[in-house]
Design a protein around this nucleic acid. Sequence first.
DNA 1: GCATGATCATGC
DNA 2: GCATGATCATGC
Length: 476
Amino acid sequence: MAQNLQNRPYDVTDKHSIWEYSKNLLGKTLEETVGHELAEDNTGKGRLGQMVERYFFGYEPNSNPTPDFEEAGVELKCTPLKELANKSLQIKERLVCSMIDYSEDYKHPFKESHVYIKCAVMLILFYLHQAKVPVQHLQFLYSVLWQIPEKDLLIMEQDYDKIVAKIRCGKAHELSEGDTTYLGACRKGQKGDTDVYYTLPNGKCCDTPAPKRAFSLKPQYMRTILDFIQNYGEPAGVNTSALVEGYGKGLISKEELKKQSFEHILLERFKKYVGKSYSELCEIFGLEESKAKSKYALIANAILTVHGTRGDDVTKSEEFRKSGIRIKTIRLQKSGRPKEAMSFENINYFDILQEDDWYDSRLYELFTSRFLFIVFQDCGNKGEEDYRLQKAFFWTMPYEDLKAAEPYWQNIKDNVAANRIDPAYFYRESEHRKFHVRPKAKDSSDLADNPNGGKCKKYCYWFNHEYIQHIVETEK
DNA sequence: GCATGATCATGC
DNA sequence: GCATGATCATGC
């Protein structure tokens, strides 16, 4: 369809003009903004974005590999926020950028890829998700013009290379969102879609077909965009990248990233401390020997921030916030069995009841995180414990285990819904199903609100001892 | 020795 | 006061 560029109420060649115009949507629904009733376009998911293009911006949606506002080089994205039980706003989903073409993408470097060409600059419109409300009746809350900062692009380029490398060798079916740092390969398709076969660089067909996937910005990355808007407001849209570069303390410099991968740089920081004991490491970093249960985590933090200021919290750094990488310490006994199982956050009973899709659940996000495991092993003798740094490695939950996590999530969700918040109904460690549920609270009087009324005990997600041992042992 | 329930130090 | 990153304590 021919596009009329002249008669639009904004300058199609100017991203700031487009952004200014988009602000007419804020605080309103699409229907309120256009001033007349709209029928929901029957175009499936992503329909709100298409309706905004058609009825608000006045052009017909296309599926070109170029940005939606081609002349300005801006891609339009509409993405939902959800309200949590505590009334705060949260990212509901990863931001899908563009479909992955398994037969084609590996032929192109990142800077020539569809995902880069389309999404380097995005106008992101956040709206408030409400279950079962037609999209034209959902309210827009924020509009941000997001130019991906140069340093983030360096990390995304490494992510892209990692994803296409897997595809190139016929392993697209093994892709996981946890493989990468900012840019993820997320599943994207309808229920019941069949897996697709694709062509390898040698011209042959792959052995194993793979589910459809898209390049996406991971939820944790999106969360930092939301934080940014909520903390800095309007300026975010005026000169995004200049402000973003200075937002949050970085752990790694642009110069380092140009030479080495993100993960390589971090792992290098551990190398010279391998074999050192807890006391020796405290000495080296000028830390008091501590009784805190997190004392080994404090050592890991000191090692990672060695180039920064002492006292910095690595998990608060720009790179860790944007990537959602989780650092976990593991103590192995002499036998190699982990001293403890591994706990995660408390189950939020209200939030899990609201989750309608495993792939958008909190647990899925947790379990598709990239993990940085730091292993200490007991090397003491005569009954004296002496934990020494053994190794550090990055890890992502394999696809098979992630599949086993869905029934674990479903079991918790079903039991919470049925008011059976009790270990008798949850997965137990003795069932050897990789994960279990166990208490996590200040003490026995520290209770949570029960969505079914009254109070109940606080429980959290756990990895079994056995599962952690398996992870450590299969790490070369 | 292991599984399970209970709890702690710390930082914001 | 609560989340985080864990370890402690007990009974079988």
